[in-house]
Design a protein around this nucleic acid. Structure first.
Lengths: 119, 119
DNA sequence: CGGGATCCATACGGATACTG
DNA sequence: CAGTATCCGTATGGATCCCG
């Protein structure tokens, strides 16, 4: 009976989505990743500026988690004063498709909510 | 200078990602959507079962938000006792690509974290 | 500049009980 | 079955100050 296998497959997919969201949890991670992603390399204060509304405390915390999960690397540059550069790992780059899709969807979504508000 | 335009484009994309995440906020929405998505139609208690860990209170709250944002529709079936069916709207279906990508990524991710834990 | 430490409000979210 | 209401702990996250 193929129906049973289809259900098992669905369970797997739903779990996989859950796994993914586990790493990308919180309000900010995806936005942070997209900032780094679009610029390839990005400094702390730049990301702070890109991601509207985030505080430095949150950014610091989220970046640390992303680093632990091997999605970004952190490089301290020997400048005066210190500069820190964040970069997506190869693994982090595998999220690029998702980020692009989200960006596309977000652009469409904005059209919809600003366009036909009263509907 | 094309660099300036590229930067403006990046800002737009980052904002778009932010917009998208605004609708998909919270711990559960994506998982809920994927449950409904994979089954096309899905009942409250089924989703409750699919999405591991969610409470009925949260599920109810999240579904309501998704309905407000026109991502899902809610249909009360005239059964005994009452059955409620959730379905993705056409608009909600536009998230299917993202959900599939997340599922794919989640499957890869699980391999990585279970495979080379000690690295 | 890139954070860490502390303080504090409130949003999130679980457990339980209740209802139509 | 599909929620709602209440209670309550915890996590989230802002503001501010501090440091190398």
């Amino acid at each position: 009976m193929i129906g049973t296998n289809a259900v098992a497959e669905h369970k797997r997919e739903i779990m996989a989505v859950h796994d993914a969201m586990d790493v990308l949890n919180g309000k900010w991670k995806i936005s942070i990743l997209s900032s780094i992603c679009y610029y390839n390399k990005r400094r702390f204060s730049d990301i702070l500026n890109d991601v509207k509304g985030i505080s430095n405390r949150m950014l610091s915390k989220e970046l640390k988690e992303l680093e632990i999960n091997k999605l970004v690397t952190r490089t301290v540059l020997d400048t005066q004063p210190v500069t820190v550069q964040y970069e997506l790992t190869k693994y982090g780059l595998s999220l690029k498709t998702i980020i692009n899709n989200l960006a596309d969807w977000g652009i469409e979504h904005r059209k919809i909510i600003t366009g036909k508000q009263g509907e």
